[in-house]
Write a protein that binds this DNA or RNA. Structure first.
Lengths: 254, 254
DNA sequence: CTTGACTCTGCACGAATATGCGCGTATTCT
DNA sequence: AGAATACGCGCATATTCGTGCAGAGTCAAG
């Protein structure tokens, strides 16, 4: 195995799991721990990760920690991203919504996943340039700067030719009675349209969105197949959705 | 086996597997490792892949590559960007090509410019989020990762509804006789189509592209209205273009 | 047809790089 | 404190690399 490839692999595992263990890596890759340790040392010298006893952590524990504390939901969004990413099977066509949570999903997709990702968000598209096996289809149209996605008739027209297996939707409100909602009328229409062009729709529902309703309704909960939520969400908060027959996807624990 | 054929094969394997190993290739092709290594070295020099110990990786781990290209003659590109940006008048509809030079143009656009920018490059689109007065239309389609633009039939279809005032085109070769050229067939078609949907076409021609021809021809020089070049370009290098009736746009000195 | 310039390929050899092992030391856990 | 584990360093070995060189093939001018 090529040294560079190995380092990439290490960084990938690190990004996905939040940590790596030297011994585990050695076994996974069938190499001596010395080699792994050498890699870790070099990556650490390049500032790509932070060396700790037994393995390594993401580059700046300080920064990561600071960021984590500053926006609590950042951690959660990443976990959601990981769980949502695992919903996309090789060979499938998946629609990825815009927004920061969706960017997290893109970031958590395995580097070697072979699938097709449809998105109307340039930022999501940019996240995917490193995924060699991924086909990326960008939905064009008028760019709405506040949410950094394309919408409008041109975007709807571009959608007509697409039938996806799964749609991962970002929203600002998930309420048992009020349904899914967002803060912008155009967005509501767009998300609904995206949903209609996918066989299944899953909602990326970070903690603070559960039980909340925003001004513009996208569609009722009944039309959704499942919610992707953080591990820390109380079961009580989810029961109304479970009773409606929705699947609940949670991140796998470390 | 022909050298070209062999290199093509190497790139193909590289794209499929995400890496190539010198030893393996030598066995597969029944050649000495020396030959393979020579090929790899040359492909690396052309920027088609990235050489590492034991084999090679795709050139466009994109990040490194894109970042690297970004810094090539950055000074000149910024100047060109400034000059090109000044071509876009308030109220106009302008098409902006992809590529690092075009990103520079986007970056140099006045923050208060009120116009419409059409682009098939997500990176250009991202540059423009801070321009409140700017309408941004993104051309969708299949995303080609090496050059970070959308192309293909979907992109062409999206274009049909658009008539722009001006198109700022990025190329890799500008030659008096050979015309405008680029390193990718699909790109050549796309650029030509973009040009056909604009009243005027100007070419972003940084120093190193003048007098150079790339494999795929976009169109003859006669169909272009002008070149945007760096201030430092020798007049002699431009005379053939001037004689053909092209306007030459140079950055205004500081 | 011949000759000379040029290109491509494989081989040889010294240099550079990567990997695994041993061993003494440092860190962590109980 | 003592055991277990992880660490870093030096060294030996195995690949891999780059370069110089020679033979084979190609092409075009004479």
């Amino acid at each position: 195995m090529l040294t560079q490839k190995r380092k990439h692999y290490i960084l990938e595992v690190l990004q996905r799991n939040g940590h790596v263990v030297a011994k585990t890596l050695a076994m996974e890759l069938g190499l001596s721990e010395d080699t792994i340790r050498r890699d870790l040392r070099e990556l650490a010298k390049d500032g790509q990760l932070q060396r700790v006893h037994g393995g390594a952590l993401p580059a700046s524990a300080a920064v990561a920690d600071y960021a984590a504390r500053q926006s609590i939901s950042e951690q959660g969004k990443r976990a959601i991203g990981q769980a949502a990413a695992s919903l996309i099977q090789p060979g499938q066509i998946a629609i990825l919504d815009g927004g920061t949570t969706a960017v997290q999903v893109a970031r958590q997709l395995p580097l070697n996943l072979a699938a097709t990702i449809v998105t109307h968000s340039p930022s999501v598209a940019m996240e995917l340039i490193n995924h060699a096996q991924l086909d990326v289809i960008l939905i064009g149209g008028k760019l709405y700067k506040h949410s950094m996605v394309t919408m409008g008739t041109a975007a709807l027209a571009a959608l007509t030719h697409i039938r996806a297996d799964i749609f991962l939707m970002g929203v600002t409100g998930v309420h048992p009675d009020a349904g899914l909602s967002t803060g912008n009328l155009e967005e509501a229409y767009m998300k609904r349209a995206l949903s209609e062009h996918a066989a299944e729709t899953f909602v990326l529902a970070s903690q603070e969105k559960l039980g909340v309703a925003s001004p513009y309704v996208i569609m009722p909960m009944a039309e959704v197949h499942g919610l992707v939520v953080e591990a820390s969400v109380a079961t009580a908060q989810l029961t109304p959705f479970v009773e409606m027959g929705l699947s609940i996807i949670k991140p796998s624990p470390l």
